[in-house]
């Protein structure tokens, strides 16, 4: 829960800061967009791995920057070659995002189902004790 509160606060503060920052030249907006997708992918990855208790700070930070830089480099190369390589990066990142979202979803669904099963079991135990 703590995780989501932190994310929410981060988002609000970020939006407040972002509104007051001047915009960047249009030429670079393509790079920023691909970096945003990469960062979004990292955040989803971090949430899913922390739910699975496999979170590693070094992997997260390095992934955050290396992914973003690689995606931007690909975009640059694509512009030079006149091929939309950044689409490939977008596809990969969004695919991973859905994977991670699936992991998160499964974790919570299983948690709720577990709770129900436990509650049912406890109720049955209580009833059997009364009898």
């Amino acid at each position: 829960m703590m995780l989501f509160i932190a994310i929410l606060i981060g988002c609000i503060v970020g939006a407040l800061i972002g509104v007051n920052i001047p915009m960047i030249p249009y030429t670079y907006s393509g790079y920023l967009a691909i970096a945003i997708i990469a960062a979004l992918d990292s955040v989803f990855g971090a949430i899913s791995s922390s739910l699975q208790k496999k979170f590693d700070m070094k992997i997260f930070i390095s992934g955050f920057f290396v992914n973003a830089i690689l995606a931007m480099a690909l975009t640059y190369l694509g512009q030079k070659l006149n091929v939309d390589i950044h689409l490939a990066a977008v596809v990969v990142f969004v695919g991973r995002m859905f994977n991670n979202l699936g992991t998160i979803r499964r974790y919570y669904v299983e948690k709720i189902t577990d709770r129900k099963i436990i509650a049912k079991a406890e109720a049955t135990i209580k009833e059997s004790k009364k009898q």
């Binding site: 994310i7 503060v13 970020g14 800061i17 509104v19 907006s29």
Partner: peptide, 12 residues
Amino acid sequence: VCMILTIAIVIQ
């Protein structure tokens, strides 16, 4: 990280 992300999104 989310703060950085939102800043970038708003700028974009």
